[in-house]
């Protein structure tokens, strides 16, 4: 690592800067986390949170399929999964995300696709509040 004598610079950038960036990227390689999502504590929300549900996909995109990256794609798209018949239960999502196991009754690939969809929910989309509450409990 660090041998760059045969490489040309891009845009005239000094070699040292690129070496530093390479080294920085290697920091925390092999299994160490580089990003942690803040999961704020809120006392005693357990009861209400665990009964919440997350429709996949949200009603605005009902009928869409979920690809392996959690994106909503047109129904029938190759390699994408049909949506679950019922909304995902908050407790099931929480457990799957915490333990790395599958959602109940689903194989690994399908479960992972749905969980990726959930992980990418944004404010304003149905199910986001449930997901955000789960984040608070995962620790």
């Amino acid at each position: 690592m660090g041998e760059m004598s045969d490489e040309t610079d891009h845009d005239g950038e000094p070699r040292e800067a690129r070496t530093t960036r390479r080294r920085a990227l290697m920091l925390g390689a092999a299994g160490a986390a580089a990003v942690v999502s803040i999961r704020p504590a809120l006392a005693q929300t357990a009861g209400s949170v665990l009964t919440c549900e997350i429709p996949v996909p949200d009603p605005g995109r009902a009928g869409g399929y979920i690809d392996a990256n959690g994106n909503v794609v047109p129904a029938g798209t190759k390699n994408a999964f049909a949506p679950p018949l019922r909304p995902l239960k908050g407790e099931d999502v929480r457990r799957a995300m915490a333990t790395g196991g599958n959602l109940p009754g689903m194989d690994y690939e399908r479960s992972r696709a749905y969980l990726k969809y959930v992980g990418r929910l944004q404010r304003g989309t149905t199910g986001f509040t449930c997901f955000a509450s789960l984040q608070m409990l995962r620790k």
Binding site: L25, L27, G28, A34, V35, S37, I38, Q122
Partner: peptide, 16 residues
């Protein structure tokens, strides 16, 4: 902003 979620990251992440 889109999710309202805060993350904490170490140095290489912002450059990436």
């Amino acid at each position: 902003r889109a999710s309202g979620i805060t993350h904490l990251a170490v140095a290489p992440v912002p450059e990436l």
